[in-house]
Nucleic acid binder design. Sequence first.
DNA 1: CAGCATATTCAACATTTGTTGAATAATCAA
DNA 2: TTGATTATTCAACAAATGTTGAATATGCTG
Lengths: 220, 220
Amino acid sequence: MSRKPPSPKSERILDVAEELFALHGYDGVTLRQIASGAGVDVALANYHFGKKLDLFKAVFDRRAVEVNQARLEALRSAQARSAPDGPPLEEIIAAFLTPLDDAQRGGDSGWTNYLALVAYINNSPYWAPKMMSSLFDKLVREFIAALKAALPGAREEDIYWCYQNLSGALTLALAKTGRIDKLSGGKCKSTDISAAFERMIPFTAAGFRRVCQPAGSGKK
Amino acid sequence: MSRKPPSPKSERILDVAEELFALHGYDGVTLRQIASGAGVDVALANYHFGKKLDLFKAVFDRRAVEVNQARLEALRSAQARSAPDGPPLEEIIAAFLTPLDDAQRGGDSGWTNYLALVAYINNSPYWAPKMMSSLFDKLVREFIAALKAALPGAREEDIYWCYQNLSGALTLALAKTGRIDKLSGGKCKSTDISAAFERMIPFTAAGFRRVCQPAGSGKK
DNA sequence: CAGCATATTCAACATTTGTTGAATAATCAA
DNA sequence: TTGATTATTCAACAAATGTTGAATATGCTG
C-alpha cells in the first residue's frame, strides 16, 4: 500500500534508517551504516533527503499519517456504533491501540521498526517535544475528548495523568526491549503485541475508571 | 549522603555525564561536552573511569544500589506491617514507586537526571537487555513475587504483562518529556512526580485487579 | 539515435571523535 | 623539605563523521 515509489533505492534507505534509528537512536547511527545496509553509496541519502536530520524526520513522517488515520477511523467507527452516548472506555482504548497491532500483523517488519522508533522518540526528553506534536497531537486530543465523554464528571488533570499512564504502557510495549521475555522466563514475548494489548486494554480501562470516576457516581 | 569522595572533580564528571546522557543518550554526548561542562580536561574522564562506555556504566551504577535498597526496604516494611497476609496491591506498588519520589524531593537535580537516564535505558532495545538485568532484576522479582501473593490464583503471564504496563507508565513519567504539560495546557507538570504517582498507584492497582483477578473470586 | 533529467557513485574536505602518552601540578607521608 | 603517589592538563594521534561538488550511469522522451 505504498503511495508512490520515488525510487526503489530511496525506499530502501528509509527502511534501513528506520531499523537502525529505532535500535540505536539518532546519534547512534551513521549515514555510512545506513548506506551500507541499503547497498548504496553514502551520498545518495543526501541526494534524496538532504541532511541527516531531514532523513530522520522523513523516516518519522513516512508512516505517521497512515497509522494515525487508521486510529482515527477506528475511533469514529466506535463512536458511530454507540451513538449518541459515545463508546465505553474499552472501545476507545481499543481504537487507540489495535490499529498498531494490525499494522505489524502484515508481517511487514518495517512497521515494527517504525513503532519502535516512535517509542524511542516519545520517551526522549530531547526529541519528544520537537517531533511528537506536529503529527500526533491532533489524534491524541481527539482520544482525550472521547475519554472525557466516557468519564463524565472526571477532573481534567486526572484524565491527562491517566492518559500518560496509557501512553507509557504503550510506549514500552512498542520499544520491544525484550525485558519481559527474560523476567517471565519466556512465558511472555515482547514481539507478541496482541498479547500485550489483550491485557493493556482492560488494565488501563480499569485504571481510568478508578482514578477518574468520581466516588459514588451513579452506576449504569 | 555520598559514600566517599574519590575526588571532587570526578564526581562533577559523573554529574554532568548523568545529565547529558539522560537528555541525549549515549551516542548523543561527547566526552568533550562532559569535560567542558565539568570544567575539566577531556583526558580526566579517561583517567578516572576508563573508556566512554565505562563512564556510562559508572553513571548508571552510582545510584542504582542506593535507590533499589530503599525500594526493597519499603517493600519489607509494608510486608512487616501486614503480616502474615502480605500487603494489598496499593501498598506494594507504592513501595515500588515512592522511594523514587523521595529521592527527587531532596532538591537534588542529580536524582532527577539519574531517573531520566534509567528511563532512557529501560526503553532502549539496545541498552535495556545489556544493562538493566544486573542491577534491577533482583528487585523486580521480589516485587513480582509480592504481587503474586496479593493476587492469588492469577495467571503468571497476566502478572508479567501487567507489570510491564506499570513499568512503562513509570518509565515515561521519569523520562520527563514534557509532553503532558503541553497536552494539558499546563494543568499537569511532568516535573511533578508526586502528582504522577498519586494517580499511577490507584491506576495500576485497579489494572492489576481487573486483569489478574480470576472472575468471580470470593470478595473479602 | 540524441538530449535531457534523474539517479547514483566517486573522491575528497574540514571537523569532530575517543583515546593515549608524556608533562605538570597537587596532595600527603616521612 | 623531600619523595612518591595521585590528580590533572597538554598535545597529538588515527579513525570516523556529515557534507559537498564533480563525474558517471540510468531511464525516459522526442
